[in-house]
Design a protein around this nucleic acid. Structure first.
Length: 473
DNA sequence: TTTAGGG
DNA sequence: CCCTAAA
């Protein structure tokens, strides 16, 4: 058993490298994607402001803005402290709606490109920051104590956290305009955000931006972050509750089925995290000896040719390792299932969609090899699963405005519209085999404008996926 | 080994 | 995500 554990650990060690490379690769990818960052930002901002003006006429709405923001800033006024949840949710709803609107119009202008769309999605907090949150002279940091007013508060704060984070990114984007001021705002946001996290949701704390001057925000791929953090925070907060509720049940069920592999992995895990277990009992996170518990998993990490490392500064790597760490820690107790589950970032989703567009649905090994070559995690199966999920979430409901009610199922909403659009397109081109609940597209013969079918490789699109599978009816 | 499906 | 069956 010990031997086994050792072997496992070695594998883990090896796989760390490709994991890092992947981040680099993603950076690369992202660098290619956005056509003109700045222009889009400007447009977004301008548009946003115009749009906002319109809405400011509505008194209560603007009030709602103000209100929501204050809460976010750490409860400046505890006067509003009660029943704030509902109101704030409404606020969010309204905001999101606005964003939708903007986005649609934007789309109508055929400004394709994920980056822009995504910026649109996160653009509204910036409006807030410019209007309602004039940088208070560093006095709102201590006020966060009033946060504890409501037990249910953490739920909604998950979303708020994400939004706040988004606003940071956006603000930073427009930094060149605002100059120093912009940076100050960023810093302040950082701190506010941090304090908020610290006091009410320790889980989120790790993904909070460090107060240091935005070094990690400089990346052009930073738009990737909000999605991650949003999902993460959401998941964490919900998850901690859910675990106790349904976790045991699931695990038991799982235990029935699991065999050698399960035991194997389990033993490995406990061994790996064993040292940590001794060091901390109830304390906070520990600087992990196993930096990023990257998961080699059952896949074939061997195939991956180790290129030289590029940037290890990719923001994602940080949050990933945090995520992994937390999961490792938590998994000791509950939810042994999904021992290693890595959040899909927006970048990854985009990459996946690109890959599908290029190689076709069903060619998951190809996609894996070419686009996710350096991701030790993300086996072809994972890609397929993700695609399945994307299909489900994209083809399903339109954005139901009531989704905000419970902060659940935000997942669909988190996807930038452009991505969803692409998913839908691809879905109609080649429907995933045997999707039962899926709508039947009436046209098969139509060849929609394929993306950039001839990007890197001249690889022909595999005919199989398309021709073999026909419309399911 | 890779995909498709189901859980 | 995980697992199994079928290619």
């Amino acid at each position: 058993m010990k031997k086994l554990a050792d072997m496992k650990r070695q594998r883990v060690d090896k796989s760390v490298v490709p994991g890092l490379e992947d981040e680099a690769t993603e950076v690369e990818h992202l660098l290619v994607e956005p056509k003109s960052d700045h222009v889009s930002v400007d447009r977004v901002l301008c548009f946003g402001l115009e749009n906002l003006e319109k809405h400011l006429k509505m008194e209560d709405f603007s009030y709602a803005f103000d209100y929501g923001w204050k809460i976010n800033c750490g409860g400046l006024d505890s006067v509003h402290g009660q029943g704030g949840d509902d109101l704030k949710l409404e606020v969010l709803d309204g905001l999101l709606d606005e964003v939708d609107e903007v986005d649609d119009i934007h789309a109508a202008q055929d400004l394709s490109g994920v980056c822009e769309d995504f910026l649109l999605d996160i653009e509204f907090p910036n409006k807030l920051s410019q209007l309602d949150c004039r940088p208070h002279e560093g006095s709102n940091l201590h006020n966060s104590s009033s946060e504890s007013h409501s037990p249910g508060f953490s739920g909604s704060s998950a979303g708020v956290g994400g939004i706040l984070e988004s606003s940071i990114a956006t603000v930073l984007e427009s930094n060149s305009e605002n100059g120093v001021l912009g940076k100050m705002v960023v810093c302040e946001l950082h701190q506010t955000f941090r304090s908020k996290c610290g006091c009410q949701a320790p889980v989120v704390d790790t993904i909070c931006p460090t107060t240091e001057p935005a070094q990690d925000l400089d990346d052009p791929d930073d738009y990737d972050k909000p999605l991650v953090s949003f999902i993460m925070s959401n998941k964490k907060l919900k998850g901690s509750i859910k675990v106790t509720k349904g976790g045991t049940l699931l695990r038991q069920k799982r235990l029935h089925k699991h065999t050698r592999k399960y035991i194997e992995e389990h033993s490995t895990k406990s061994t790996a995290s064993g040292k940590n277990k001794h060091l901390k009992v109830g304390s906070q996170e520990e600087p992990p000896q196993v930096p990023s518990d990257t998961r080699p998993r059952r896949g074939h990490p061997k195939k991956i040719a180790p290129k030289l490392d590029l940037g290890s500064d990719y923001e994602l790597s940080a949050s990933e390792s945090e995520d992994e760490r937390k999961r490792t820690k938590r998994s000791k107790k509950a939810s042994d299932r999904r021992k290693h589950q890595k959040m899909w970032t927006l970048a990854e989703v985009i990459k996946l969609v690109d890959g599908i567009a290029e190689y076709g649905v069903g060619r998951w090994t190809d996609i894996k090899r070419h686009l996710f070559a350096s991701s030790a995690y993300r086996t072809p199966v994972d890609l397929r699963d993700k695609w399945r999920n994307l299909l489900r979430s994209s083809s399903g409901h339109k954005h139901n405005r009531k989704e905000v009610e419970n902060n659940t199922k935000h997942a669909a909403r988190l996807l930038p519209k452009s991505v969803v659009r692409r998913v839908r397109e691809l879905a109609t081109i080649h429907p995933y085999p045997r999707v039962r609940g899926k709508k039947a597209s009436s046209v098969d013969s139509c060849v929609p404008s394929s993306k950039q079918l001839t990007t890197t490789k001249g690889d022909p699109v595999p005919p199989r996926a398309k021709s073999l599978r026909r419309k399911k009816e």
